[in-house]
Design a protein around this nucleic acid. Structure first.
Lengths: 524, 524
DNA sequence: GGTTCTAGAACC
DNA sequence: GGTTCTAGAACC
């Protein structure tokens, strides 16, 4: 019967044999119900029986083995009673160690060397790991903390800087707005003056044109200019060359020179003498152009008179009947004033009875006191306008001129913008470019000279850039005066063109001026 | 002998008695050298002796107690030998349990219920604490992480916004710079024209003054203005009122009206008829003031002529000999042109032989062709200047005017700033306010009118604010075009005044124009 | 896996 | 602090 259970440990087999063997029943046997076994004579059992089955005679070692396989001592209540015989038998039991149930021995397992040790070891490992992790976490925490505080400091500075930049921005906005407002005010005021001026001129000059009652301009040829004694002009640009080119000649000799005969008077005298030698022939050519500005109420007013049959001279005359879109007011003044040269008129008056030249005789015949007064009337009114402009701080920035400077160059793109701008104008610019009015050669030359100045001006870097602008986009940066507080939105930085354009837009938009309708920029 | 060691546990005392008692030597006694004790007959000892001293007869319990007090079993080599008698005695020893050394029993201590358990418990507590802390740290770590990422996002946005704001700022800077440059260019160009104009005027007017050869201005009283049929001026500001106040009257009747007789002609006619009814009496007053501008080269030129004995009229005349610091050029034009009214001159010439008024007769007598030409010369030169200014885009912004507009108000603080500004000027302003030149009543009235306009102008909000500026500080925000990248520096936000001032500074500083020396702002 | 010594721990 | 049962652990 022994060893018939291959998977049952040796101790269990030996124990089964000992308990189940009837020969050892006096030392070790089943209890009454066969659920446990009892060692009846402990001392004899250990010293006589145990050595036969095991390598020892110690009851302790036997008990240790029992405990090792999960056997438990059955406690007896009577042992608790005081001083009862200490010889009562030792009793042990196990759920799978039952009489007649030998097959259940396979279920009895020897206790493994304690999971507890493993658990403890694992716990220790865990502790060290936990501590390691804790240190790591703490280190990273510290790193985080420093980063956080650094970020917070940076953030504070950034918020400050953003606030300050926004303040700056707003300040600049104000500055720009004010500058623009300032300019706009000038423009508006000037525009009103222009309107006023035109009306005044009409008031004084809108009488019927007198075809042949026209002044003459006597000019010195460019080649002769060097011979004329002109006061030193060191340090001065020759922008006013136009004026220098004109030298007035006297026609009569009965001029009374009342003066101390100082240096400036000498120039005068010299100019006179030059006139006497060459002035008469110059009188033969008379560019007669009278530009009378028209208005809504005086559509039939403006007439340009031109004498094509006169001989032409090769000197430029500051008369232009071609429309100068940048200078609607000034061009008119230019032509009317230059054409009606006061000296020429005076000469005509004074020489009324003479017949110096056949070409001018017709004009001379009609020249009378009335014409002279009329001419002077016009001139005076023009001057009054200028005075008003200047004394009233009416800086003569023409509004349309400014608009065009800010939108496009006449030189660069004349047709488009002039048409675009001017077809919508309120008749303010109507004095220029009446069809059917052709300019004489002298006038053309003069205009080219004027245009040259214009070109010079439009080449200003600011304008040059502005002139390259498109007209659609409304850059946000300039318009957006209310900075977003918490919503941080990505804003594309403005290009220089956009910024300039913004200025323009601002200029036009800022004030709801009547000028708006004249500007192609504003389509809102 | 028992209980004589009060601090020795009962077990040790009983053990000492048992071992040391010669009566029990057959069961338990000292070994040969007295360093340990032996149990000779284990079974009889446990069953017969132990119960006499202890509450049990179990050898195991006895051994357990020995172990508990640190006694150790002495291992015998012969037991390792195979199958030697199993009866060899059990031997135990303890360093302080020696024969004859009963006093050392006090040093034998019962093992405490294991520090190990405490350690384990502490470790467990530590583990739980560690875990708790770890969780806390982890939680705070997560909080930190979220804060950090939020901060980082905010930071990125802020950096972006800072960049964008700086770009905006730079763009605005450009815009301001360009606007200012633009204005400055206008100013500079205009200044050159002013210089030019002055020279031109000197060229034509610096002859010796002819005291009584002075024109007359015929003015219509303000009350009569309403009677004059003036074209409708709806929608127009009455800023040019000055011009409206002046109506020119014809002196002679032989005026030939050649025209289609349109509506505009009617006005002309009405004006004429008005003259014939009331004009003659008006001719009696003549405000004669000739302001000839002086320059460095023509110190002796400027003279102001005044006829105080003429009757004064109650209408304002746009003549001013008082220095208009805002309009040095225009004021000169104003006086010279208004004083030498063309009509008046013409009247003088045409009425040379008549004696209308004793007051003007002196002037009339001296009026001749030369004076007329001279007058017209001046007028023409002025006109030429205007033409040049206008056709050459010379917006008549006086440089000094602009400077003053940007620095102080003549109205607000006239004396300080005028002196400050003008004493350093390069003779450009020298035409105004020559001492010893007193203005007439009419001139004063006119200047007041002009000043009224000036006041109106300086009340522009932009100017008003600019006028309140100090001139020392140079705000950083405007000048600092290079934004600091990494160094975040606290910048004080600009006040509006500072911003405006910055504009002014910019205006002056931007271009190294010759204007700089004229400005009190620039002290570098 | 068994044996032995010692310890843990519950209970008294 | 002692007793008992059981377990830990070293050693074989």
């Amino acid at each position: 019967m022994k060893q018939e259970h291959p998977n049952v440990p040796a101790f269990l087999c030996k124990l089964w044999m000992l308990v189940d063997d009837p020969d050892t029943n006096e030392f070790i046997t089943w209890n009454q119900n066969g659920e446990s076994f009892m060692v009846l004579d402990e001392q004899r059992f250990s010293k006589e029986i145990l050595p036969k089955y095991f390598k020892h005679n110690n009851m302790a070692s036997f008990i240790r083995q029992l405990n090792m396989y999960g056997f438990r001592k059955v406690l007896h209540l009577d042992s608790c009673v005081v001083k009862v015989e200490h010889d009562e038998p030792i009793e042990f039991q196990h759920p799978y160690f039952r009489q007649g149930q030998e097959h259940m021995l396979a279920h009895i397992k020897r206790k493994v060397p304690s999971t507890k040790g493993e658990e403890t070891k694992i716990t220790q490992e865990d502790i060290s790991q936990i501590l390691t992790n804790a240190h790591k976490v703490q280190a990273s925490h510290e790193t985080f903390e420093s980063r956080l505080s650094a970020l917070q400091r940076e953030n504070e500075s950034l918020w400050r800087e953003v606030g300050e930049l926004k303040a700056k921005h707003s300040q600049q906005q104000q500055v720009i707005r004010k500058i623009v407002q300032f300019i706009l005010t000038l423009v508006q005021n000037n525009r009103l003056v222009n309107l006023k001026r035109k009306r005044t001129l009409l008031l004084n000059t809108n009488g019927p044109p007198q075809p042949n009652v026209l002044p003459q301009i006597v000019k010195e040829p460019d080649d002769d200019k060097t011979t004329a004694p002109i006061p030193t002009t060191k340090g001065l640009k020759r922008r006013g060359q136009l004026t220098d080119d004109i030298i007035i000649y006297d026609v009569t000799d009965d001029l009374e020179v009342e003066g101390e005969g100082d240096a400036s008077n000498n120039h005068h005298t010299v100019a006179k003498s030059e006139y006497t030698s060459s002035g008469i022939s110059s009188l033969n050519h008379v560019p007669e152009i009278v530009l009378v500005e028209d208005d809504e109420e005086y559509e039939d007013g403006p007439v340009i008179q031109e004498e094509k049959d006169l001989e032409s001279v090769d000197v430029p005359i500051p008369v232009s009947d071609e429309p100068n879109p940048l200078l609607p007011g000034s061009s008119q003044l230019n032509s009317s004033l230059s054409a009606e040269d006061p000296v020429t008129i005076m000469d005509s008056i004074l020489n009324e009875n003479e017949t110096d030249s056949g070409a001018v005789s017709q004009s001379m015949n009609h020249l009378g006191k009335a014409e002279l007064v009329d001419y002077l009337d016009k001139m005076d009114c023009s001057l009054e306008d200028f005075q008003a402009m200047l004394s009233g701080k009416q800086f003569s920035i023409d509004p349309d001129l400014l608009v065009e400077l800010f939108t496009s160059s006449v030189q660069m793109n004349p047709a488009d913008f002039i048409n675009n701008t001017k077809t919508e104008s309120k008749g303010i610019e109507s004095s220029k470019s009446k069809e059917g009015q052709t300019a004489g050669q002298n006038t053309e030359t003069s205009f080219k000279k004027s245009e040259k100045q214009l070109v010079q001006y439009t080449k200003h870097p600011f304008l040059t850039e502005l002139l390259e602008l498109g007209t659609d986009a409304v850059p946000e940066a300039i318009m957006d005066t209310q900075p977003k507080q918490s919503k941080l939105v990505r804003l594309e930085p403005l290009t220089e063109e956009e910024a300039s354009e913004a200025t323009l837009f601002y200029l036009c938009k800022l004030e709801h001026s009547p000028l708006d309708s004249d500007m192609p920029l504003l389509d809102d």
